[in-house]
């Protein structure tokens, strides 16, 4: 699959979609649906919902293909962003973050203060992420965990606080500083 993905011309397929070529949408699906479903499933955590997300995302790809601008970025990235957006909208609008209620957060914060052991890595990454990999390496563990939990698992601040057993305020600060460090490192 990676070989096929790297040679597939996403920009040409999107241009064909914009011209009304339904076979081009099918080609995108054939090349990318397994990865896209994997990405959506990590975020929405339910197989049927993930397929709903992919259905809606492909409808978006079809209707928005004409607005894709190859001078502003790559076709594959554009497609992935549509799927992630759809998945994030699905979990944020369903109010999944409500699960981290104020009491729970306070309890976690109290516990976190008492339990100041060094944080373990939340992720073991086997994929080759290039420059991003190096820049993530430079972050300290809490910032790296926060960024990865947010991006890969679609966690809200509250969910990250629960997963890392850390105060909500700390998580917000880690995300902010993590983003600024990444930006500086990747500039």
């Amino acid at each position: 699959m990676p070989a096929a993905s790297s040679t597939f011309d996403y920009e040409a397929a999107l241009a064909a979609c914009a011209g009304g070529d339904r076979a081009a949408l099918h080609r995108i699906y054939q090349h990318e649906s397994r990865r896209l479903l994997g990405v959506a499933l990590r975020i929405v955590r339910d197989r049927a919902r993930a397929e709903d997300v992919l259905h809606d995302a492909f409808m978006n790809i079809w209707t928005k293909a004409a607005s894709f601008d190859a001078t502003r970025g790559e076709g594959r990235g554009w497609i992935h962003s549509i799927v992630r957006n759809q998945a994030l909208s699905a979990v944020r609008s369903s109010g999944r973050e409500v699960s981290a209620d104020e009491d729970a957060i306070e309890a976690i914060e109290a516990e976190a203060v008492a339990n100041a052991a060094p944080m373990a890595e939340a992720f073991e990454i086997n994929a080759d992420l290039g420059r991003l990999d190096e820049c993530l390496e430079r972050l300290d563990t809490p910032k790296r965990n926060s960024i990865l939990l947010a991006y890969v698992d679609g966690c809200s601040h509250g969910e990250i606080a629960q997963r890392l057993n850390a105060p909500l305020g700390s998580v917000k600060a880690w995300v902010r500083r993590g983003l600024l460090s990444l930006r500086e490192c990747m500039a």
Binding site: M1, S33, R34, R35, L37, G38, V39, L41, R42, A50, E51, L54, G73, E74, R76, G77, H80, S81, R84, F123, I125, A127, D128, L129, G130, L132, D133, L148, Y151, V152, L182, R183, M186
Partner: peptide, 15 residues
């Protein structure tokens, strides 16, 4: 664009 490589972290799933 910067974070796109992180989409490789999720294992592919057959629809």
């Amino acid at each position: 664009q910067k974070l796109l490589p992180l989409n490789e972290v999720a294992a592919p799933v057959e629809p």
